[in-house]
Amino acid sequence: MNRILGYTLILLFLLTVSLASLLIGPYKGVTLGDLIDYIRGSYEGPHAGVLRYRSIRTAAAILAGAALAGSGITLQYTLRNPLADPYLLGISSGAALGVLLLILKSQSPPVYGLYTIAFISGLGSFGVVVLLSTLMGLSATAMIVAGVSVSYLLGGVSMVVLVRLGDKIPGAAAWLFGTVAYVTPQQLVYTMLASIASLAGILVISRRIGTLILGEEMSRGIGINVAALRLASAALASLAASSIVAMAGPIGFIGLAGPWMARLLIGSWFPYSYPAALIAGAGLAVFSDVTVRLVGGGEIPLTAASSLYGGVILLYLTLRSGREL
């Protein structure tokens, strides 16, 4: 597919769902005219509060989707694993447990503390997953098995911590299943800083990451320090993914689906597919967040919506990878 056409498609997708996210919700009565006035700064009607809330929520979803998909595609290239995703590889569950433990230990932990502990524990559990999958032969599926196992283990511990949180249980439970409904502007700023740092770092090494489609031996042959590249990429990918966990909890499958949407539309040259994955992931996250609002009987968790299509994509890729990867 033509690259420009591909980019146009995913940008249109992101634009459409973002618009829907600003206009659709349980609170009815916001019109497109209101929204345009609000964006211009000339709105003086009764919906200002709702519009502000929905703007923050939409921005949070865009940020979450972009960061998770960016993290996912980086891991897919550097680990040479088409199934890699921060959620499936244990980064998200590690970061989540870290955050819950900090909340348990301290009454009102500082926001930067939450982000720091998320990054450290996310990277730590990812390290354990890589170690385990090395013992299992480092195949694409072995890595996912190791990642999912570690995720279940840490998820179990998280549940134990969760029930000890007293009056914080309802909020923490909603967060643990992934949601952008309760994001504060301060969290948005922190997450944006972490994501931009990750983005900048990955862009600097994007051509080097691109050579990894040749395989490790050929990449090394043209002068790439593959071990150092993997380490840097893992740290940058974990930074983005863990900052999303700190803001919105562990959100599944967008880190898997976004990259594949990008690769199918744009191709596999990383400097092109990476920005496309950011846009596609943002679109998918906003789309999922709109979906959770539309399901009757109150909001469902974000991961529930993203798992619906993410699970299908994972199955499809696993079936294919059995044949040719």
């Binding site: 080097r208 050929m218 790439i224």
Partner: peptide, 19 residues
């Protein structure tokens, strides 16, 4: 040869040019 089977030939050619 351990080239990513999903990569297109043109992309492989581009990657080889690095450095």
């Amino acid at each position: 040869i351990m080239v990513d089977p999903w990569a297109k030939v043109g992309e492989v050619r581009r990657a080889v040019l690095y450095g």
